[in-house]
Design a protein around this nucleic acid. Structure first.
Lengths: 226, 226
DNA sequence: CCCATCATTAAAAAATACTGAAAGTCAGAT
DNA sequence: ATCTGACTTTCAGTATTTTTTAATGATGGG
């Protein structure tokens, strides 16, 4: 999940960014309206956290443009406490939710999660493939009930594979999903990470879940390879 | 003091929130049962103002869950005038006080203050994780029966971690709860205090309770990492 | 047997966490 | 009011882990 924060106060931006990153979101920060607008145009974000009080292009202007461009990013607006009059306006202009400053991070997090959960209501908390379980809420992984520690990237990759069990995913697809959009041409990073996962997930189990499909990519499946 | 209002009527919620903020409480608002439950799970509130008539999860359900989870938040329930029959039920379910709508703000304030002033009743003073015990009444901490001296901040941090055993808490969350300032930019103060705790709590014990989850935060847990 | 493809390993680069000490704060005692 | 000592916070250097690159060895289909 890709998020953009458009906020000029460094403290606030850092604080939010750090918290959201800890929740394993990919977070970018823009420090003013112009930069924000450019980034929004360049990348397909899932959600934008937008401060309305900005130097350069005003937040309201960005909001309007975003909606008229018809992107599919959810928009969470930050307003000053007493700007209550603007609220109605903002909702009309296309904000999906708003929060008045100052706010507790937990409050922001709840709203962000609510907005991101919105489109696919089928998003299950627990993915299961054979005796492998991933909990998307707590990001915990277990195999045969035993806890497995994964790094951020490892988890990300495994989640992607587990979300499409039995399906063969190409390296290109994987890179686009797990790593940022554009990754330099030739790299074997996917292979390396698949190996990491094999060591942590498959090693010591007779049933191997990670399967290589030559010339195509990788696949996480219950079926035993021949 | 951290308060949460769970109330779907915007007018009422705003009204109460504003009034309580003027009294210098840190107030969060949840607009439906689901959001409320998530926030309660995420944050250790001192008091929850809970409307019983909610969309999503019903207020009664939240009440039940809260108590069964055994948080230490006081709960002030708002009910409709004529729902007198429910009152007894609610008290049994664990409400600490109730108020019938409509009510005067002053009335609410009196009850809130009374609840917050109350000496923590004989409910869950003791948090326990493995052989670590914290008594919230006396703020005493013991590991394997042996007394540990902690400073105010150290205790505060440990209590927060112990209140959510097994759960990974991000630095952002921790800063918000233990240091109530909202937006402190980048600081490693949490790291420093975790170290203090490690020296006092984990050092000399073979089973380490404080676990670092890289890129995310910290966790107090009985479970041994793999 | 050849060659493209994949696996494995090592090691550089980047990100993140730990550590110890200095500087700053605050409350109680003198 | 000033001092004192404990507590809190900041800072900077070190250590560790993760991520990425790259080089080498293995494998299998044609």
């Amino acid at each position: 999940m890709r998020l953009l924060i458009i906020e000029d106060e460094k403290k606030v931006a850092d604080f939010i960014a750090r918290g959201l990153r800890a929740e394993r979101f990919a977070v970018d920060v823009a420090r003013d309206g112009m930069a924000g607008w450019e980034m929004v145009s360049a990348v397909n974000y899932d959600l934008v956290v937008l401060d309305l009080m900005l130097p350069g292009i005003s937040g309201t202007e960005i909001l309007r443009r975003l909606r008229c461009r018809g992107g599919n990013a959810a928009i969470l607006v930050l307003t000053a406490r007493d700007a209550t009059n603007d609220k109605v306006e903002n909702f009309e202009a296309g904000a999906d939710d708003y929060l008045t400053k100052p706010f507790a991070f937990a409050e922001l997090l709840v709203r962000v999660k609510a907005l991101l959960r919105r489109p696919p209501p089928t998003r299950n908390h627990v993915l299961r493939v054979a005796d492998l379980e991933l909990d998307r809420l707590t990001q915990q992984v277990r195999r045969a009930g035993k806890r497995i520690e994964l790094t951020a990237k490892e988890y990300s990759l495994l989640e992607y594979l587990a979300a499409h069990p039995g399906r063969v995913l190409s390296r290109t697809m994987i890179i686009e999903h797990v790593w940022d959009e554009s990754f330099e041409g030739l790299t074997n990073i996917v292979d390396v990470y698949v190996r990491h996962l094999r060591v942590k997930v498959d090693e010591g189990h007779s049933k191997k879940l990670l399967r290589t499909v030559r010339g195509v990519g990788y696949c996480l499946s219950e079926e035993e390879a021949t």
